[in-house]
Design a protein around this nucleic acid. Sequence first.
DNA 1: TCATTTTCATTAACACGTTAATTATAAGAG
DNA 2: CTCTTATAATTAACGTGTTAATGAAAATGA
Lengths: 153, 153
Amino acid sequence: MKNPTDIPDDSLAPRATRRSLPISLLRAREAMMSHFRPMLDKHGVNEQQWRVIRVLAESGKLDASEVAERTHILAPSLTRMIRAMTERGLISKDRDAGDGRRVMLEIAPAGMELLRRVSPDSARIYAELEQRFGKDRIEELINLLDALSQLKA
Amino acid sequence: MKNPTDIPDDSLAPRATRRSLPISLLRAREAMMSHFRPMLDKHGVNEQQWRVIRVLAESGKLDASEVAERTHILAPSLTRMIRAMTERGLISKDRDAGDGRRVMLEIAPAGMELLRRVSPDSARIYAELEQRFGKDRIEELINLLDALSQLKA
DNA sequence: TCATTTTCATTAACACGTTAATTATAAGAG
DNA sequence: CTCTTATAATTAACGTGTTAATGAAAATGA
């Protein structure tokens, strides 16, 4: 019979990194993006810019705070991205008439064109992942993730 | 009865951002870290440094590539972190005797001390999350995430 | 052995993440 | 109507993420 003292004292050892939720989330996100990133790169956008394009395509004109919230991009990052994306003609920016603090963003012609080019590739990759992983398991996973997100501090 | 033409043409609209797996993963990770980040900040480390400390505490001396892989930190980031962390005495660095290319990393006294200080707080936060979300659901979630990670490109 | 290729780490360059400070405008209190 | 407070966006500063290029050492192979 095994002597209990043979068990190493791991009172100072944090949870094994292999079974840690934050790390599993990080790893899963990396794995997901490894599918999409090369395609986005081919089209000359990064992940964050693609999120901005999608949100504006989905909801029309929005103020910067709303875009930041929906894309999960922090305001300082978004400010930098707005500069780059307006210069490329992907989005347009103008101040809100009613509230001078607000910056309104809208998808611009080059952004629409990008959307048309990227969407089919994106949909194809997502569909393949759905097919390989199972649509039901993805649904289940998203449900768990969204429930977890409710627990934010 | 609803006319089918009332349904807007969304052939160009990517999956709603609310039901996109990459975004759900991002949001869930943000939510998780919102619990840990203030605590880590209080102890003067960031999330990435804490991962390095944990991996070295868990596995002893490792070469930089191994640490990069286990912490999911890219080599260039790790190089920068090694400089900062050795200066703070959190880790030690020396070249491998057998292979002159390899850099061996090991937890140092200040790193052990940090581990002792942070671990209880970390464990407490994790336990609270387990209690609120359910240990079984966390297990289920980690299983799904790890299965998803297998599908990397 | 020597040239080639491969591997590990670093550097470089640029973008985003993060927090704090700042500016400009709006909203609210008196 | 002013003073104060709150909000939106920007700027600043620094660290990490990411890719490409470079340097150094080891492995390969003619």
